[in-house]
Design a protein around this nucleic acid. Sequence first.
DNA 1: ATGACGGATCTAATCCGA
Length: 266
Amino acid sequence: MTFKLATWNINSVRLRLPIVEQFLADHAPDVLCLQEIKCINDAFPGKALKKAGYEHHAVHGQKGYHGVAIISRLPLRDIASTDYCKMGDTRHVEAIVETGTGPVRMHNFYVPAGGDVPDREKNPKFDHKLRFLDEMRQLDAEAGAVPSILVGDLNIAPLETDVWSHKQLLKVVSHTPVETETLNDVQAAGGWEDVMRRHIDPAETLFTWWSYRSPNWSESNKGRRLDHVWAAPRLAERSTGIEVLRDARGWEKPSDHVPVIATFDL
DNA sequence: ATGACGGATCTAATCCGA
């Protein structure tokens, strides 16, 4: 079977329900992972998304900030959240997806942005980000003999080609060496493969986020690849493509992130 | 690029994002 998965930092799911519905109608992923839903579970637009054909939900939200959700046309089981850094915030949700050909565990993350100053002594938010990543080292892409996929807004652009200017962003949070090295450690420790870069040449620039502050985001194109799709090797081997919907940055009332779609032949 | 935008919040000015 073809398994189609999407991840999208939606920056308020309530405000952007119309473009979520449009996206689902146009691209019909089996599973959509959302970050920054910015609402409590009771305010999640579950009814509308069920009507769109996505009956199975794993929602972990809070008031005002953060919040993640998995919506699926396929059954979900073993839904769980981990409270990384024991902050009581909502930055992770996982579930096992029952594909027709066996279970796949999905991890959906919203890693802390890390504030402004890239110094963990001076900036508690940066320290939080690095501690969060440290805890992510425990993840195993083959945990419980179920192959896993890890997606989300990891708020780090690891490669030189994941930012508009490697030189100018080396001291900007999201592209500092300590962040990219720690992210690489998480990836190696868990046995994860970067599915996006399996299909898109690492020599090619690749962005999933463009700041709202740039009035001419498309022309100036000062983006970063903050959103990621990782998979256990035996799933990565079966991945058939990646699509980054750059055009979504120009939709009506856009998120500052665009959807990333990954397809697998399972 | 220390922000020109845009979101949520006890609706007004404040905090937050990256």
